[in-house]
């Protein structure tokens, strides 16, 4: 694979290694807000063995997972993954997380998404990428819009936390949306 696909300006992507990388996931999950941004299901604590087992089950056919690594110190700061492939319709689902709060809002996630979208549209021949995001995660919604995802609607009151209800936003980017964005970037 052309390495350039995985090289950004401030970060690069590399394959997730269940043996070495579960330590990062178990550290990130200590932050309840991180957990509550990641999933609508109950926030839980997995130990390293449980997490490794989950990865080993998923990673061969159902999941392509990458670590987002900061270039200045080669430290993994988050992950990005594609799962739920529907090859004949050319759709798959994207998930992303940046672990430590001090690394939020710095554009690392946007850079990782730009890399991954290039890979799935130019090499995997996907037609679209989908994601869902919890209504209270405004920062993520802005980042997804910046990467070219469009808001396709919201499942009303999908999620309950602390006695309140929030919507679940559904977002998607088509290959043609992404191509238009690339054209604009070249012109500028």
């Amino acid at each position: 694979m052309n390495e350039a696909y995985l090289q950004g300006k401030t970060i690069y992507l590399r394959a997730t290694d269940p043996e070495k990388d579960v330590q990062y996931y178990t550290a990130w999950q200590r932050d309840a807000l991180y957990d509550r941004f990641m999933d609508s299901l109950p926030a839980v604590m997995y130990n390293k063995d449980q997490m490794k087992e989950w990865f080993e089950k998923q990673i061969t056919s159902h999941l392509s997972s990458f670590m987002i690594v900061r270039k200045t110190d080669n430290t993994p700061i988050g992950f990005i993954e594609i799962s739920g492939y529907d090859w004949h319709s050319g759709n798959a689902w994207l998930g992303i997380g940046i672990g430590e709060r001090e690394n939020w809002g710095k554009g690392y996630g946007t850079e990782a998404m730009n890399l991954l979208l290039r890979l799935v549209f130019l090499e995997w021949n996907l037609h679209r990428v989908s994601l869902s995001v919890l209504g209270y995660n405004a920062r993520a919604i802005r980042a997804y819009e910046k990467a070219g995802f469009k808001n396709e609607g919201a499942l009303r009151g999908f999620i309950q936390r602390d006695g309140q209800r929030w919507d679940m936003y559904m977002m998607g980017i088509l290959r043609q949306d992404w191509e238009k964005l690339q054209a604009v970037q070249i012109e500028n």
Partner: peptide
Amino acid sequence: FVREACLREIVFHEGTYHDRILFGLL
């Protein structure tokens, strides 16, 4: 039911892409 979301071109059928509608009822 309310049309809550429309996932664009996510179903491939008869040679073209079609939307999938997500309906919801409370």
